[in-house]
């Protein structure tokens, strides 16, 4: 039970504006972090985010950790010959001067072994590990299962 209590205190209700927070590390800007509500804790959750590299050196997202899931992983949804699969992605390239999105239908964080169900309106932290820039933690806003992305005033999308 101790583990369960720890998990519930790490997942808290927060205003929806959270997803619009921007964090930076080195030349990287990380923003628009969001997730979808899950039905129970048995199903995997998902993690989407946008990363901008304003530097002159290529970097790569090599892993994610979060107190919300026992086994978080990077995946890429691939549709080949009409069949969708989502293999493990060893890393997500973040080339110099470019933006990369973990977004529906492409790269995503797969949050397996959720410690608790993700509810719309909740928020939880995810730490992203970059090959060159190191680690940075961002707050992830849980939107509805139907959501297609966060509604940020400065979203620019």
């Amino acid at each position: 039970m101790k583990h369960f209590l720890l998990a519930t205190t790490l997942i808290f209700s927060a205003p929806a504006a959270m997803a619009c927070e921007t964090v930076t590390i080195g030349d990287l800007t990380v923003e628009h972090a969001w997730s979808k509500a899950t039905i129970g804790a048995g199903r995997p959750g998902v993690f989407y985010v946008e990363i901008k590299n304003s530097g002159t050196t290529d970097d790569a997202l090599v892993g994610i950790t979060t107190p919300a899931a026992g086994m978080p992983m990077l995946h890429e949804t691939v549709v080949q010959d009409g069949i969708a699969s989502m293999p493990h992605a060893m890393s997500v390239p973040v080339p110099a001067g470019q933006s990369v999105q973990l977004a529906p239908g492409g790269y995503h964080g797969m949050l397996m072994e959720l410690t608790t169900a993700l509810k719309e309106g909740d928020s939880f932290p995810v730490t992203l590990s970059f090959e060159k820039s190191g680690e940075v933690t961002v707050n992830v806003d849980v939107l509805s299962l139907r959501a297609e992305g966060p509604d940020c005033a400065d979203a620019g999308q």
């Binding site: 199903r43 995997p44 998902v46 529906p104 239908g105 995503h108 797969m110 297609e148």
Partner: peptide, 11 residues
């Protein structure tokens, strides 16, 4: 149990 393709398609 599909977190990405299925909810995206249904949305």
């Amino acid at each position: 149990w599909c977190p990405d393709v299925c909810p995206t398609t249904l949305s």
